[in-house]
Design a protein around this nucleic acid. Structure first.
Lengths: 352, 352
DNA sequence: TATTTTTACGAAAACGTTTCAGTAAATAAA
DNA sequence: TTTATTTACTGAAACGTTTTCGTAAAAATA
């Protein structure tokens, strides 16, 4: 019997309501005054301010963000949509964003699209339903139409793209790495080392990063009067399986390529493993370059030359832009705003 | 002049208010009826239901979660606190949780404590302020007191720990890997291969996972009548720098250890690199075992034997438990509930 | 002292949803 | 037919905050 009532008592005791109203009643003040203290409004007497603050401390009052959010139409929450948090670039970028926003009082809702356009559409809806204050997006490989983000932009929720960004004008901030330069540097590096038959394994063309990287590759080749051989260039989603298929094609018959430029590090790692399997020496017979400076690229033997994207810096830029947009309130959704380009750097290692 | 008024017009037009009230007015119904339709309440005529739903579709109505959250005291949001999302185990677990919860209509707020107790305390407060429906936590290495989570449990917000969990009884769900067994299997494996001088590099004792792993190591040694040599065991945060210091101590003078059991894969990787540097052959002169089956452990040469924790499975268990707790509402915060133990498996590779 | 200005606070409405209590109409039971 | 029951809906209050407007009291000015 006594056990039956226990939970009710507990619940009652635990459910100490700590609303502004309760504070007001306890202090013989109005809720308005409490609110003003909590929001650092002027025109509140110093004595009452301290009185309120000590009471707040004492009872452990925490603002109910749903109530205040309902009233102010602000959630202090930022949404983030990435293909996969396990991708090294995103892992690092997220960490920086998360820390940066936390110091400014924002929370982060992280969602993964899994590189599925359907899920991405769904997530955009969810973000709107959650009434986040802004949304940061790295698109899927297959996002060529961006109208599913309209629900956000049309409802004054700023959208900020990074890495994989719209290729068409869209009313949103755009922050992207210098993919053209990254691929250009990598290709030039291979050429200068004497590579003659350079293969390029690209992601699906249609995604801005692969468009730009291909352009960088092409430009470097042209500058050195080297023709781009179509049969040495592959376009597909950069999975291990796909990479292996392309590698099989590349090494089906001689002459073998003497260098592989991979549009990401996973593909470079796969190429390295493949070369070992078929007994080709890296870098003597085959040079390999990757992209992103994934930590794995530095621990394999030989370590892989790759392109550093400075994800921490990208994260910082995102946070800075975001805070700027949130301050200016809708100011920077200009459809013609130029993208912000973040720098890259070639990391030379043993594979070249 | 005309440019000046444009934005105001835009704003007005874009800010199409789509509240339940607006729908009600448009359909000559009361807000209550709309709400019942949206929440699938019974006692609503089929004709009106379809009428409402078509209108909802048409205007793209999305429930304002802050308003409904304020009323119902539910946010449909789950909080997650991990040391770092870049840690392989957590990356995978998060992905599973995220996908699982999304199908049940929950959002996930992910925060990183950065292995800082201060930040963890802060985040617990933030989670309460956000009024999340539940919180999932993998503690910092240094969390031995758990009272900063009281603000959650005392306010009926269920807490669920995984991986790094309270070592003392605490009113929360606990899900942990079988760390004892993992270390036991790994140690037995080394012994059976003939290792005589087995070094163990552990994380700081005080954290449950390292307590359990040490116990597993000790038990395997005892079973084979091998004494645990104190000077071959190291306890410290498992960073590269710390690992290298211990390795220097281990190889300062002979006899060298003939096997190293590392309490995580990063340390195992560091040991492997160190062995290469000083010209010790792995596995001939030194066997190395790690923990977690980080992808890096399989791509180095030689590949590293390690303990698989099945992070996807851990994530599934977490989701299942979470949904159960959320359904039962506070039922399972019994302080004496036994922890759920998830299985592990030894992955044999070239390093042994 | 009388008037204006400033300061400190309160009353009340609003945000958009959910839900309790109630009511009219339709159906079933007497 | 009358009475009870079910069905389909409405009105209004509530959730906890913020903010506008208003008003006393205090301070500054005349």
């Amino acid at each position: 019997m006594s056990l039956c009532v226990e939970p009710a008592i507990m619940k009652k005791k635990l459910n100490k309501k700590n609303s502004i109203q309760d504070l007001a009643a306890a202090l013989q003040l109005s809720p308005a005054t409490i609110s003003r203290v909590l929001n650092n409004h002027p025109h509140v007497h110093e004595a009452t301010r301290t009185k309120v603050m000590t009471m707040v401390e004492q009872v452990g009052y925490k603002r109910n963000v749903m109530a205040s959010g309902l009233r102010t139409n602000k959630t202090n929450t930022i949404g983030l949509i990435v293909p996969r948090i396990s991708m090294f670039l995103h892992t690092e970028v997220i960490t920086t964003i998360q820390n940066g926003l936390h110091t400014h009082g924002y929370n982060l809702i992280i969602c993964q699209s899994n590189d599925s356009l359907e899920i991405e559409k769904d997530l955009a809806q969810t973000m709107y339903a959650s009434r986040v204050d802004a949304v940061i997006v790295a698109c899927t490989l297959f996002t060529s139409d961006f109208s599913h983000f309209d629900v956000l932009t049309q409802n004054n929720i700023p959208v900020l793209f990074y890495d994989r960004v719209p290729v068409k004008p869209y009313p949103a901030c755009v922050i992207k790495g210098d993919d053209f330069r990254g691929a250009y540097l990598a290709t030039s590096h291979l050429i200068e080392l004497g590579s003659k038959r350079i293969a390029y394994i690209s992601g699906p063309i249609g995604c801005n990063i692969y468009i730009d990287r291909y352009a960088g590759f092409e430009r470097a080749m042209q500058q050195h009067d080297m023709p781009v051989q179509k049969d040495l260039v592959f376009y597909h989603e950069l999975t291990v399986d796909n990479a292996r298929k392309s590698l099989h094609r590349l090494f089906a018959r001689k002459p073998y390529p003497d260098a592989i430029l991979a549009a990401n590090d996973l593909t470079a790692l796969t190429a390295l493993a493949f070369a070992k399997e078929i007994g080709i020496a890296v870098p003597q017979e085959l040079r390999i370059v990757g992209y992103s400076n994934d930590p794995r690229s530095s621990i394999v033997t030989p370590s892989i030359t790759t392109v550093e994207q400075f994800p921490g810096r990208i994260g910082q830029v995102i946070v800075a832009e975001l805070l700027r947009v949130l301050k200016n309130d809708m100011q920077s959704v200009a459809i013609d705003a130029p993208p912000i380009i973040t720098p890259v750097e070639l990391i030379r290692r043993m594979s070249t």
